[in-house]
Nucleic acid binder design. Structure first.
Lengths: 140, 140
DNA sequence: CAAATTTCAGCTTAACTGACATCC
DNA sequence: CGGATGTCAGTTTAGCTGAAATTT
């Protein structure tokens, strides 16, 4: 667990260096990449994905909206839901920084063979799955 | 990178559940575990380890000191350095929660064989090392 | 009516920058 | 004197809780 946290801290620090010049924070940048992967998601879904309250996500998203990087649209099938999605400007910002971010990912796995990298990804994913399982989960 | 972050978020959330009843935050708890691993460290060393400013660490440490969980002592060899170390109460708090924290670590690796767990730890450590390397590090 | 989603208002933590004293 | 360490002061970000409106 300690090494997972240390790796995440180191990556975060490097990402800060990369994203600094973009005018948005690393947190906001990460939110954009999530929206890029997972099409349009509601505020509540985003909140669950990132283990924070809906209010926190709403604050984050409204800042991105003010900068024209995301849009919020009512889901016509369920009028209470707001679907958050990238605007062209948001997508453009992502492509602008994708090179440096990919370089960082390759730096991380620089000393790993292709096979080891695939193993690593698989192990990370299995661990994440096990930690996410709600068994013995007394909350809420 | 995304999966690393997701795993860290999930672990953090579980750790919050565990530590909640202790009266200290997860951040403070993590600081105590670091001091447990690495004997007495100065504020500046702690700050570099956790990628934050010395001021932030000082704030964290003085809260722990107020609760009697850590001590700050001048290094006699270098009077400007303050060595932060666990008090008996701090060590006791750690042992009180070590059972649940170890269970969480075993939950994380529940579906991994012993050999895979060792591989995972090694891969994490190699990635951390590569990301920490200061090459192409244009900062400061 | 109950549950889910979003929003409004206020609060707190934990980070930051800037300035400064002290020590090696 | 330069560089490192720690401290004081003020600010901001990003989370939180509580309460309420709306929809399903």
């Amino acid at each position: 667990m300690y090494v997972v946290k240390q790796l995440e801290l180191a990556l975060r620090s490097r990402l800060d260096d990369i994203v600094r010049s973009s005018g948005i924070t690393t947190l906001q940048y990460t939110a954009l990449t999530v929206l890029d992967r997972h099409g349009g998601r509601s505020l509540a879904q985003l909140a669950r994905d990132s283990f924070v309250t809906p209010q926190s996500v709403a604050f984050l998203v409204s800042n991105l909206e003010r900068q024209g990087l995301v849009r919020r649209d009512r889901n016509p099938d369920s009028r209470r839901e707001l679907i958050v999605s990238l605007t062209p400007a948001g997508r453009e910002l992502l492509t602008l920084y994708s090179g440096a971010v990919n370089e960082l990912e390759q730096l991380m796995t620089a000393s790993l063979s292709d096979e080891e990298t695939e193993t690593f990804r698989s192990l990370l994913d299995r661990c994440r799955f096990d930690v996410l399982q709600p068994e013995t989960h007394p909350e809420q």
